[in-house]
Write a protein that binds this DNA or RNA. Structure first.
Lengths: 191, 191, 191, 191
DNA sequence: GATGAATGAGCGTTCATTCAT
DNA sequence: CATGAATGAACGCTCATTCAT
């Protein structure tokens, strides 16, 4: 097994176990066993459990961002871009429930607070294209002139809640409902 | 110290420590110390830590519901009632950050999933008046004809996200912003 | 409730709970509840749990001795007295399974060692008439000339084992089997 | 220290402490300390304290069975085989007092009830050769036609009681007394 | 005298991390 | 490098005993 494969096996095992049992319900020993490596080996790739958790998040977050940008055309109108991104986000979550649950758990933990503080609000948030879109939208008077944080809340709040409830089986989000949901979000931020 | 006082001291200590450090970061021994009681004493009032957590939630949830209904007039139009409830919700959270963080943490845990399944989606959700409001709104064709779960997501998603970001200091939610936020939520659910 | 009644209620509750769950599985609080008294009250009658356990044993042991002597005629031949005592012992245990299980548990615990050392082997063992019987039997050359301890073992060993197995349901000890068992014991000690 | 050594050290420490203080008086922490290992280490070898207790019993029971069969000749007459087995049993207990006290304690606990139910009375009791011997003895009309359970009681009852009293110092069981005791047991079961 | 709420030492068990092999 | 056995502090919880009422 190549060195990067082993790292991926560990991350995969961590994803599965943490998704299923939570951060505290997924001991390093169990992750190691599921990954087919020794417990000590994990510490050659990740200095602490916290770092493993954070790096797994970053990996998943990067994958998500790549997905969102697939087919994204920066020259389209704000509204079209918003609908594209948001529908892509929902579709990604619905087809990747494990990734969604991990990301959600991470955001809802103390880790997540730091992440939002660092990446979204300060500089460095350019990778998630929503920020650019909101800033453009405001300057073009297409989007309400509200603080970025509130625009994020109006967008991600419903999208994450809907994705979660679909994954939990509280609602069956077919393509029609998905599109309606995304449209509703747009109504809340559009000028 | 009277018996009910001691129970309240324990709940207060649990609220503070769990808010600050999470469920897993708040050992019974620490809660007992902060409450000024012996560790064993807690078990006279709460059979297990899980039950303490759940009863604290229920207490805070009841307080929240009382607050929402303060000044609520059921005969007002749908929109006015929605704006009233949602503004009250946001104001309560902003003035009760500890309570908010506890409720949020609870909802984001496995406990919360059960709660939503039992109380909001099945019968028994009558105490939170949003459900009545949505159902009336749909039948009057004032609110979009979407599944209840999605209307909940469109409402609570942004509100909770905004409250959280205000409490974390990411945005300063003054009365003007609060009203704008609530109005934006209304746009997303209105017909 | 008179003071002696309360004491008896406590002993009765202790008998029931200890028989069912063992010394360690019968907390003072549970005994108090079953007895219908406060936990602290028990300590007015028994200085410690150990003393409660010991006094309950002594009470049951006295009752047992009284029973054995019922209809006992000291002037009968050794063999007849042995058969009478032993059958009475078995019958008492079979009809008083709770008392049996308590006595057995007590004898099999560190408490029991002290008891045998003190009461049976040294002076003071006159209340259980077996000792007199064995000593007479040896001097009359009707009983084997073996140390008292061994005669006790040859007698009580099988009787207690048979009583236990009957109570546990491993054998149904009717009057015929009971008499055969006692007779078999006599064969092992008779000259 | 090799891996099997460590397991043996733990079993040895458990044997010593449980023999001395009982199941409840021998905390895992104390067993670990006496064994010279960390408390957590015990759980690598035994999933729970109960399992440690049971496996120690099985180990001691196996050793005992091996001992009994040493020099045992299945083609000898019933009586000779009984005397051989029973004398070997007594000798083993007298020379292994700690093992005896552990086995006795185990048999007198709820664990022991299950053991007797499963191994001795149902099928699977073939390892302890007493059962075969009794069944043969009955069919040859050399042994009284009594239920197996009673024959066991008539045999093990006295033997265990005598061994216990020897170990406690209540009687000094030299070879002469040992043989007399075993012979007395035979008298109680022989036709 | 009677109560039962309060105590806190002690229990069995878990698990992130280390380190000899 | 990789391992997984070993660690021990920390956890949730129990219960014999005390003592203010």
């Amino acid at each position: 097994m190549a060195i990067t494969e082993k790292r991926q096996e560990i991350l995969k095992a961590a994803l599965e176990l943490i998704t299923e049992h939570g951060f505290h319900g997924a001991p390093i020993a169990a992750i190691a066993q599921r990954a087919g490596v020794g417990a000590g080996t994990i510490y050659r790739y990740f200095a602490t459990k916290d770092i493993l958790i954070t790096e797994l998040f970053e990996e998943l977050h990067d994958q998500l961002c790549l997905h969102l940008l697939d087919g994204y055309e920066a020259q389209q109108p704000i509204r079209a871009r918003f609908l594209h991104l948001s529908a892509a986000l929902l579709r990604y979550f619905i087809t990747h429930p494990q990734e969604f649950r991990y990301l959600e758990q991470y955001f809802n933990s103390p880790y997540g607070v730091e992440f939002r503080r660092d990446k979204i609000l300060k500089n460095g948030g350019e990778r998630l294209p929503y920020r650019v879109l909101f800033e453009e939208g405001i300057s073009q008077q297409v989007v309400r002139d509200l603080p970025l944080v509130i625009l994020f809340a109006l967008t991600f709040g419903p999208l994450l809640a809907v994705a979660r409830d679909h994954i939990l089986g509280f609602v069956a989000l077919d393509e029609r409902l998905l599109v309606l949901t995304v449209a509703a979000c747009w109504e809340s931020i559009k000028q």
